[in-house]
Computed example of a mutant assay.
Amino acid sequence: MTTPIDQLTVLPPCDQPLEIVREASTFVVVNKPPRLLTVPGRHPANRDSVIERFRAEHPQVHAVHRLDFDTSGLVVVPLTKTSLSHLSRQFQARSVSKTYTAVVQGIVRDDEGEINLPMAPDPERRPRSKITEDGKPALTRFKVLERDHSQDRTRLALYPVTGRSHQLRLHCQAMGHPILGCEFYAPPEVAAMASRLLLHACTLAFEDPETGEALSFSVPAPF
């Protein structure tokens, strides 16, 4: 059931600019700040987004992938129908490589591993998702970057194989290590440990939709 417009949350405005990482004739790679939508929201007050900021010069622009409102980091925006089609095929084939940095509560014991738990939207707690046996496959690989025993937290590199909504947040919570600043899946005391969600899309690699060249971009986490 679709939520009526007057019951949708109005998000706070984002006054941070988009950082242009690479601008080509057929695509743009940007570093999205936290608390900015990738695509316009349903509520008229939630139009500001990565895509909307490009539509003044590129009226037909569409998103090929998204980052959560609270997540910062790299997003590729196709500027032509041909590049949209080409990049869409790459995402569908899972040939696009993505790495995220996260800071989680607690000390993660294993140096590396994977979380393979199916997920589905949680209709009772929108916009949250849930782990459920009848959900869609969801796989995340992880590697420990740093353990901070004094503050009881761990810095992780996360490698999503699938791209479910809230996958990284929910998978970290499911293995007992919620991401700091996560208002949806972390206990209140862990959510309060950071002023923002400590999740950042730090690398993005794909094939140039025009030339076929292998491209890779990197922006370190700002936390």
Rank of each mutant, 00 (worst) to 15 (best):
P220R: 08
P178K: 01
P17V: 00
T3L: 15
D122Q: 05
R126Y: 01
R66E: 09
F91C: 10
A138I: 07
Q151I: 04
I115M: 11
E189N: 14
T99V: 13
V39Q: 14
A102L: 07
P123F: 10
E19S: 15
D48M: 13
A192Y: 07
I131R: 08
E133M: 08
Y185V: 01
T26S: 14
L37G: 08
P34E: 03
V103T: 15
S88E: 05
P222W: 05
R55G: 11
P40C: 06
V190S: 05
D48Y: 06
Y185E: 05
C182W: 02
M1D: 13
A186P: 04
T82E: 15
H86W: 08
A56N: 04
A45F: 04
V75A: 06
A201T: 03
L199N: 08
S216N: 11
A120P: 02
P118E: 06
S83D: 10
A56P: 00
I115V: 15
D68C: 11
G181H: 06
E213S: 09
H166P: 01
R164S: 11
E112T: 15
P123S: 10
F142S: 10
T71N: 03
H177N: 08
M1V: 14
A63C: 12
R147E: 02
L117W: 13
P137A: 07
E19R: 14
Y159D: 00
L87M: 13
P59L: 13
Q151E: 15
M1E: 11
L180W: 10
Q92E: 15
I20K: 01
T9L: 12
V21C: 06
T203K: 10
T2D: 07
D15Y: 00
S49K: 03
S83I: 12
T9V: 15
V61D: 06
A192D: 10
P222Y: 02
L168P: 00
L215W: 01
P17N: 06
D152N: 12
S216Y: 03
I51N: 05
G73D: 03
T80Q: 09
I5M: 08
T9N: 01
L117M: 14
V161Q: 11
T9G: 00
Q7I: 01
F91N: 09
Q90E: 10
T140N: 02
E124Y: 14
E124P: 00
A157H: 15
P178I: 03
A186T: 09
A93G: 05
P220T: 04
V108Y: 05
Q151P: 07
A45Y: 08
L74M: 03
V39D: 03
C172D: 07
L139G: 09
H171C: 02
Q60H: 14
D48W: 00
F69I: 03
H43P: 10
P188R: 14
E183L: 10
R155V: 15
T154A: 14
D111H: 06
A138S: 15
V75M: 06
A201C: 15
T82A: 13
K81G: 11
C182S: 13
